[in-house]
Structure formats: C-alpha cells, structure tokens
C-alpha cells in the first residue's frame, strides 16, 4: 500500500531527476513482483512520457504487459525495446513467449524478414552512422594530406586514405539501408483484441480476414481512419488505425 502511495506521488510529477526516475523504476519493479501489474505498467509508462524511457524501461513495460495478459501492448513494447537497444537474449525470450500466446498463425509467411530489414536490425544504427562519419572524414583528410607530404610519406597516407574510404563506403551503404528501412518500412503491432481487415477503407467494406492482438504487421498507407496493413505472408487489408500501433 505504501509502495502504491509512493508510486502515486511520483506519477504526479512533471519531471524526474535521474534519482527519482531510478526510484520510480525500482518501485515499478517491486509492484511487478507483487503481481500488481497495473501499477507497474502505469509507472513505466510515466517514465517514458517524462523522457526517461530507453530499452530497459521498454523491456520491463513489455514484460509487465505480458504478465498482465495484454498481449498486443506486450509485443509492441518488447519490439520497441529491441529496436531501441538492439537484440538481446531477454527481449527475444519474452517475445517468443508472447508469440506463443498469439492467436493468429500466419500461413505461408517466410521464416525470416527481408534481407534489408534483417541487415538493419543486425547493425546498430548509431555505431554505423558514427563509423561512416569518422571513416569518411579521415579518408578525405588523408587524401588531402598527400599533396603536402614528401613522396616517401605520401604512399602511407594514400594507403590509409584508401582503407578509410573503403570503410566509409561500406558503412555509408549500411546507413543508407537504415534510412531506407526507416523511411519505407513502417512496422506496427495489433493492439486491439480483434481487428477486422476489410477490402476497402470504409465500414461497409467486405471483411477479408481478422487479426488479433500481438500480430506484427507492416503499415502501407493511410486513408482517413483506416490504414492498409500487410501480413508477413503478403495478405493485405484495411483496418482501423486505432487498432494498430507503430513500433
């Protein structure tokens, strides 16, 4: 009870210092272990709303949602945790538990995501971007230096410049992949318990199929209150925008 009151006191604040954020995080964890999942979920959400999110908070929020039976939200937050912090063992394990509880079985879906998506998921965006910038600047700088060096030292500088520029090209390609995936592929998770996918973006449209909470889909386009989704096996339909949440 005292813990709940403490959580309530924290929830009212508009800004959290790092210490307050850590205290609220710990209290939310305690609430989780007392099986007061709703209190834990609310606290994690507040941390995210106040800019104190991150992969750890997202992972705990997803896990609490999963324990509380909120399958759609659980998959959403665990996917966000994976995107924010990269793949990790605990995120993958809990995502596997969530997928096992899913109602939908997508028949004919390829076991793996497309190559570019896998490549983007496997390479940390920040590291790739930093690698590109540093190798690119270093390569061009060394190339410029060659003009002012004596012939004996010029060869070494040119070799280093070639090495840096090669690294810049490959890391630049990875940055381009990240940009492409981010700009063109919007993934989302079905958060509504059940969602009808229609042939046309209107209420009277014929229902093609129905999807349920926790299913990962791709958002293709938006029309009013409807959004066109694509399942991993290529099945497409229009559904209510509120029923899906982008990762």
């Amino acid at each position: 009870m005292i813990a709940l009151l403490a959580i309530s006191a924290f929830l009212g604040q508009a800004y959290y210092t790092p210490e307050e954020a850590q205290a609220l995080f710990s209290q939310a964890n305690d609430a989780y272990y007392r099986e007061e999942f709703s209190a834990a979920i609310e606290a994690y959400r507040k941390l995210i709303e106040r800019g104190r999110g991150g992969p750890d908070v997202l992972f705990n929020l997803g896990t609490a949602c999963l324990a509380d039976g909120r399958l759609g939200e659980a998959v959403l937050h665990l996917e966000r945790a994976r995107r924010a912090g990269g793949p990790s063992e605990d995120v993958e394990a809990n995502l596997a538990v969530a997928r096992a509880r899913q109602l939908d079985q997508v028949i004919g879906a390829s076991a793996e995501e497309p190559f570019l998506q896998r490549l983007a998921a496997a390479t940390p965006e920040r590291a790739v971007s930093l690698a590109f910038l540093s190798s690119w600047i270093a390569g061009l700088g060394l190339l410029g230096l060659c003009r002012y060096l004596r012939p004996g030292r010029r060869a070494l500088a040119a070799a280093l410049a070639a090495l840096s520029l090669t690294a810049a090209v490959s890391s630049g390609a990875l940055v381009a992949v990240h940009a492409y995936v981010s700009r063109t592929i919007t993934e989302a998770v079905v958060v509504a318990p059940a969602l009808k996918a229609r042939e046309l973006p209107r209420e009277s449209g014929r229902v093609s199929f129905e999807v349920h909470a926790g299913l990962k889909v791709r958002l293709l386009e938006t029309a009013g209150q409807f959004v066109r989704i694509r399942l991993p096996n290529g099945l497409e339909g229009w559904t209510e925008k509120e029923g899906v949440a982008p990762i």
């Binding site: 850590q22 995080f25 272990y33 750890d56 992972f59 609490a64 605990d90």
Partner: peptide, 18 residues
C-alpha cells in the same frame, strides 16, 4: 518470462543519427 531488468539507463527515444 525472463526477469525484469533491475537497473535502467534512462533515455528519451533517440532520433537516428543519420
């Protein structure tokens, strides 16, 4: 389920560097 993470590094949702 895997246990919760005990400690967190808090960060707002970061915009991609690129």
């Amino acid at each position: 389920l895997k246990p919760l993470r005990y400690q967190a590094s808090f960060a707002a949702a970061a915009q991609p560097l690129w």
